[in-house]
């Protein structure tokens, strides 16, 4: 397993450097720097801001100033601190939900694409049906039933994205299975489990990376949408979507920063992943 994936990464890097020209490089670099900065913010939040994001004060609705660079919210909490700590919330949910989606979508997509037959047809049909359903609505209902918590939000989002991983993994498995090295392995009597894990899975990795980056952009928006509607984490946990929702009540009175900055964070992080996805998509699906 180790040498195979190592070879894969070096191949990936050589393909990256070969294919990376002009705009693709710009997309990749800007996307990566956005995502990495957010990861840094999530880790370094306590160093970057002196305030507790959940502790209120009497300094309510202060405009941006030297003391509070983004002002304070209706409960007197420092908005910058809430936004910085909110990065943690969304990244944790993103990581959890991705892990869940992949751990369900990968095996069933693999088995469905490899064995085909009736099981494949049924699974594909069910997945396509779920895929056609408005994702946010499904996530709302599941989140509502499970109750608000980061893990439950991750579960409800994961459920929505399983079909995406399933479809891509299944399609990729089909095409890898028809390649000579897999046929040779089958002909030489290699155990099916070995073929699946050692021959096919490592070759799915590039696809997974691409779907992940595109999906991550979407997941960020879905989580923010869920929390905007009030079905994500419990207040006072700092959460961009929820802060945007609370802030919008003050928008018409001129307190625009309350909703502007949390929403801007959502867009920036989503943009970061979308840029990476665009650059990667170009590498694997090069259109001239």
């Amino acid at each position: 397993m180790k040498p195979a994936s190592h070879g894969l990464f070096s191949r990936l890097i050589s393909r990256l450097s070969k294919r990376f020209a002009g705009w693709r490089t710009a997309f990749m670099i800007s996307g990566l720097s956005i995502v990495l900065s957010f990861i840094f913010i999530a880790i370094a939040a306590p160093i970057l801001t002196p305030y507790d994001p959940t502790k209120g004060s009497y300094n309510v609705l202060l405009p941006p100033s030297a003391e509070h660079p983004l002002g304070t919210d209706s409960l007197g909490r420092d908005l910058l601190s809430r936004i910085l700590y909110g990065t943690r919330t969304i990244l944790i949910i993103l990581a959890l939900s991705t892990a869940l989606s992949i751990s369900i979508g990968l095996p069933i997509g693999l088995i469905s694409g490899f064995y085909k037959g009736a099981l494949d047809r049924v699974l594909s049909f069910v997945m396509d049906s779920i895929y056609a359903f408005p994702s946010l609505l499904l996530a709302i209902v599941i989140a509502l039933m499970l109750g608000p918590s980061p893990l439950n939000t991750a579960i409800s989002i994961a459920f929505v994205y399983v079909p995406t991983y399933f479809r891509m993994i299944r399609g990729q498995t089909l095409s890898i299975k028809s390649q000579l090295f897999v046929e040779a392995a089958i002909a030489s009597g290699t155990r099916t489990r070995t073929i699946l894990i050692k021959h096919i899975m490592p070759n799915l990795l590039p696809t997974l990376v691409v779907i992940f980056s595109i999906n991550a952009a979407d997941t960020i928006l879905t989580e923010a949408g869920l929390s905007f509607l009030g079905y994500s984490v419990v207040p006072p946990t700092p959460d961009w979507g929820y802060d945007l929702y609370m802030g919008r009540y003050y928008l018409l009175s001129g307190y625009w920063w309350l909703s502007f900055f949390p929403g801007l964070m959502v867009v920036l992080l989503s943009l970061g992943f979308a840029l990476i996805g665009e650059a990667l998509g170009d590498i694997y699906n090069p259109r001239k």
């Binding site: 905007f228 945007l244 909703s259 949390p262 801007l264 867009v267 989503s270 979308a274």
Partner: peptide, 9 residues
């Protein structure tokens, strides 16, 4: 990447 509630606001 636009977040609908934010863009709407």
């Amino acid at each position: 990447a636009l977040f609908i509630p934010w863009f709407g606001l």
